[in-house]
Amino acid sequence: MSGAVMDEIVMDGLRIDGCTVAFGGLRAIDNVTLDIPGGTITALIGPNGSGKSTFVNMVSGQIPPVAGRVVLKGQPITGLRPDRIVHRGLARTYQVPKVPKELTIQEVISVPLLYARSDRPLPSGVRSAADLAHYCGLRPAVTTRCGQLSVSDLRRLEIARALACRPEVLLLDESMAGLSLEDTDQVIGLVREIHVLGVTVVVIEHVMRIIARLCQHAIVLNQGRLLAEGAPQRVLTDPDVREAYLGKGFTL
């Protein structure tokens, strides 16, 4: 692939250029350079503590990198405030959803609908917070308080909240972890639908079966460094990647 073609693909995706995030002496992200091609579902994998959530925090502006650049659709977003980055079209979910207990489903989703100011469209037929909750498979009434939701519903609510930001790039931090097989399948279906809407999706996942089924591209982090990147089939059979996971009880 020539450089020009590559640049064009990356223009509508996400480029990470020599980024480092340090916590004291620990480099949770260590000089990482990679591309997330626009229009793909990309898997971000790596053993526990390899820096995946930190990567999401970095890209979304919560913990800006101490070095390097983050480029969204050709525009640098390094050092922008998190809410500004949302306005630019990047949304993320949290691995451990922590929403105010006293707010209802409807109220949580209404926050990005009101504040994420975007002219990008919502999925067709989706006009309100209630529609979006339904779209994401939330079964409880939208007037249910978040304190009463199950983990699986909190995960869906996180996806609904992030979708309400009307993103072009969406990062899902372990949205399927700890879900039943049935719930997992539903969320996989949801991710596919979101992808079909034209959203570039990054999924952080531990279950290789899901990655192989869902993703066109994969990135592997290990101890904050980029270990491998490319087609999932190739990456998952890479000896280095296997070694990074060895002893952790993962089956590839």
Binding site: S60, G61, Q62, R81, P82, D83, V86, H87, A91, R92, Y94, K98, V99, P100, K101, E102, L103, E107, V108, S110, V111, P112, L114, Y115, A116, R117, R161, A162, A164, C165
Partner: peptide, 19 residues
């Protein structure tokens, strides 16, 4: 909702586009 989100989890509020 935005105020309660700021009180409970300001990161979540910012990640929802709230200044």
């Amino acid at each position: 909702p935005a105020f309660f989100m700021i009180r409970n989890n300001p990161h979540l509020a910012a990640a929802s586009g709230v200044p």
